[in-house]
């Protein structure tokens, strides 16, 4: 018998009687009067920065004014040719990556990005600085609404990113910039 069958048989004979799944009542979850304000507060509390722009053009203008280093990869409207196949050693020099986020979560400051927006899965992690542009309409209160809206397997890889990479493994001292970006900025397009 294969290990697969051994394991499944053992589970079949040992599992308890079937217990029912709970109904997840999303109405029971917290709501926030101002989703943008909540998102911004949380993101800043976890080491990220949050900016607003009145339009896509204004967002680009804002970003253009920032110090971004020599090597910048921007995938907001299209993925640069050759990016998907680039290896780690080629991406190691990236100073700043600029991506689009599909959805943002007010309760925890996280932004959902899939490999389609990244162009290359490694990009948002290996870049020294990360900038994500997201629409205000795409901010939801909690992860419950988030998972209702996203389709986790729409692409091969998707990630919630909440701020810059960090660690507190040395005596619980928070250090921003562990292995991933040392800085993370969100630009929220607010049309109203």
């Amino acid at each position: 018998m294969t290990s697969r069958d051994t394991i499944l048989n053992a589970i079949r004979s040992n599992k308890p009687q079937e217990l029912s799944l709970p109904v997840i009542d999303k109405e029971a979850a917290i709501t926030y009067p101002d989703l943008y304000a909540q998102f911004k507060n949380v993101l800043e509390a976890i080491g990220g920065e949050c900016f607003e722009a009145g339009s896509e053009a204004a967002a680009l203008e804002l970003i253009a004014g920032w110090e971004k280093g020599e090597t910048v990869i921007q995938t907001l409207n299209s993925v640069p040719a050759g990016l998907p196949g680039r290896k780690a050693e080629e991406l190691a020099e990236v100073d700043t990556a600029i991506l689009r986020g599909l959805l943002a979560v007010a309760e925890n400051g996280a932004i959902w990005v899939t490999e389609k927006e990244m162009g290359n899965r490694l990009l948002p992690f290996i870049a020294q600085q990360l900038i994500i542009v997201v629409n205000e309409e795409a901010i939801v209160p909690t992860l419950h609404q988030a998972y209702e809206k996203i389709k986790v397997d729409e692409t091969g890889f998707g990630v919630f990113i909440a701020g810059p990479s960090k660690t507190a493994d040395i005596e619980q001292s928070l250090v921003i910039g562990a292995h991933g970006p040392c800085g993370m900025k969100a630009v929220v397009i607010r049309k109203h």
Binding site: I46, V105, N108, G109, A110, F125, L143, F157, A162, S165
Partner: peptide, 12 residues
């Protein structure tokens, strides 16, 4: 923390 910095979903 409200969530970990990265919650990565691997499918393919």
């Amino acid at each position: 923390q409200p969530v970990t910095t990265y919650s990565s979903h691997f499918h393919k």
